[in-house]
């Protein structure tokens, strides 16, 4: 068990924990009490959308995330565990928020006129705790799914290159999402709603979503794998900052990549293609 933690690491842990808690508290209040600020779509007619039901549904991923965090804490120490948690919240949380809000405010056309006709992206419906305009448990889901799939690959293929582990982890996460997404967007659940008119779809869900799953896990696993080198080179404080800046850079590159893909697909893929099974 890793228990040693330096004073500087402890400071970083407290800062990350405080930022996580602060953002969740602020976003949750903003979402529920002042929905007009970010034009939160109505949940009218949505199943399981009472506060009690949403709270209970949030508890399941919180418990699963707790198990993974406990494993990370026991095997790598508190500092690295919180870096994985904070890093995944920052990496996926900011990216999904940008994606959701760009879709909500139709902010794609500045990138390419091919995206002029884009109807939006998606929005989340159900959640007691929020992280910006995405449910906190979705961020938490990214954390423990990334953690679990890379751990699974590590158990099955010990000693292999970090790049291979990251790629296989991404592929496994995408395979999980191929079932998870159709269930969660089905009419009874509608945990999020796609308003995108993207031209390439799988199970009526934009292909970019599945590509995003692979890329998020792949890139985050690589970035996290390089964390020890950053800490060794820059020290705890600066190394942490460089880690988060690297994530920001990767995130911007991913956004650019997905928008370029969207512009090309919107121009050249016509009529739209939807790969379905039994009409899903």
């Amino acid at each position: 068990m890793v228990t040693d933690i330096t004073t500087e690491e402890k400071r970083v842990v407290w800062i990350i924990a405080a930022v996580l808690a602060g953002v969740v508290l602020f976003s949750t209040m903003l979402h529920h009490l002042f929905p007009r600020v970010l034009d939160v779509p109505s949940n009218a007619g949505l199943n399981f959308s009472g506060y009690r039901e949403m709270f209970l549904l949030d508890l399941i991923p919180i418990a699963m995330g707790g198990l993974c965090f406990y494993h990370a804490y026991r095997t790598t120490g508190l500092f690295k565990a919180i870096m994985f948690l904070g890093g995944s919240f920052f990496f996926t949380g900011l990216a999904e928020n940008v994606w959701v809000l760009m879709g909500r405010y139709h902010a794609f056309s500045w990138f390419s006129h091919n995206l002029d006709g884009v109807t939006g992206t998606y929005y989340f419906t159900r959640g007691f705790f929020w992280w910006g305009e995405m449910p906190m448990v979705i961020c938490l889901g990214w954390f423990f799914i990334a953690y679990s799939v890379v751990h699974i690959v590590g158990v099955l293929l010990p000693g292999r290159s970090p790049l291979l582990k990251a790629a296989l982890g991404g592929a496994l996460a995408m395979s999980f999402d191929l079932w998870f997404d159709p269930v969660q967007v089905s009419p009874v659940w509608r945990s999020w709603v796609w308003v995108s008119n993207e031209t390439l779809k799988v199970f009526s869900i934009p292909l970019s979503n599945f590509a995003g799953w692979f890329l998020f896990i792949f890139i985050f696993a690589i970035a996290y794998g390089r964390l020890p080198c950053l800490l060794e080179k820059w020290g705890t404080g600066k190394g942490t900052l460089v880690f988060f800046l690297t994530l920001l850079l990767y995130k911007a590159a991913m956004l650019l990549l997905l928008m370029t893909y969207g512009a090309v697909a919107m121009k050249y893929v016509s009529p739209p293609i939807n790969l379905t099974l039994w009409g899903i």
Partner: peptide, 16 residues
């Protein structure tokens, strides 16, 4: 060692 895997399977069991 199996905790992350059990967490993942538990999540999949419910949400899928």
């Amino acid at each position: 060692e199996s905790l992350p895997i059990l967490a993942f399977l538990g999540y999949g069991l419910f949400f899928c």
